[in-house]
Amino acid sequence: MSHAILVDLTECVGCGACRDACQQIHHFPQVEATSLDAQNFTTLRLYENPESGTETYIRQMCQHCKEPACASACLVGALEKTKDGAVTWDANKCIGCRYCMLACPFDIPKYEWGSNNPKVRKCTMCYQERHVREDYEVDDAGYVIDRKGKRVTVDGREITAEERDTILEMTTNYEGNRASACSVACPMEATIFGERSELVAEAQRRIRENPDSYVHKVYGLKEVGGTSVFYLSNVSFESLGFRTKLEETPLPEKTWRVLEKIPDIVVTAGVALGAVYWITNRREEVRRFEDEKKNRIKTKS
């Protein structure tokens, strides 16, 4: 099952519950940030339409691409597209090269610039939080352990029973399903967490049933080969500042096209170099032999 998030900007009232929940579950300071950074995985920005005067709140977060450029760029594979649908980051692998930040077409991964042991930070669709289970028990020291008896860590921290319950509450929606904290917090139908194909159908249904309230595009469906976060809007995505010029080809293909040729290049070039070496040396050997022959004839005569 691959999860996704549908963000319907026409439903968003800008209350900021998604942002607050995100900050709370990650233990970040509660601020009204308008741009992403290492302590803000989602933000709300107000867009006033100059023509109609209507207001649209733009929620920004990681797109969780189907074929993420960040994960393909990461030399140690710290970033990973999980089967769950979320793109996650592993603190134990990262060496801090920041190629993921350059590679991301949406400029999502952020960095702890002030730290001497900096982490790459971005939305993980509450991946670890959603996998904290109700039946996890607590060990003698008061920390939550999984079924194998191993301490459960969320975001690099071991969690207490109290924290487990907070996480469970924040990542369980009214239907009893586990979902990202932002979607659970949303009081409107603006952020929905669910199965990817169902959400695609839902997005298309909303456009079909209310064709006048939407621009006829599901943002995220085709961009860079498709993502796991979709947007619906009544204002053109371009004027909202979305990256609208992205190709439909997944970006990792651009580098893989070159990388996959390496074995051929090595073999071909290796053989070619060997051949050139053999020819040039043979030529010299022959020349040396002929010189010797000439010398011998000279000395004889």
Partner: peptide, 21 residues
């Protein structure tokens, strides 16, 4: 590198899809 002491990770966590690898 943000974490220069872990530069050796490139040897063990190999991602052949990465140009940087």
């Amino acid at each position: 590198l943000g974490r220069p002491w872990s530069i050796w990770h490139a040897l063990i966590y190999q991602n052949p899809h990465s140009v940087l690898f």
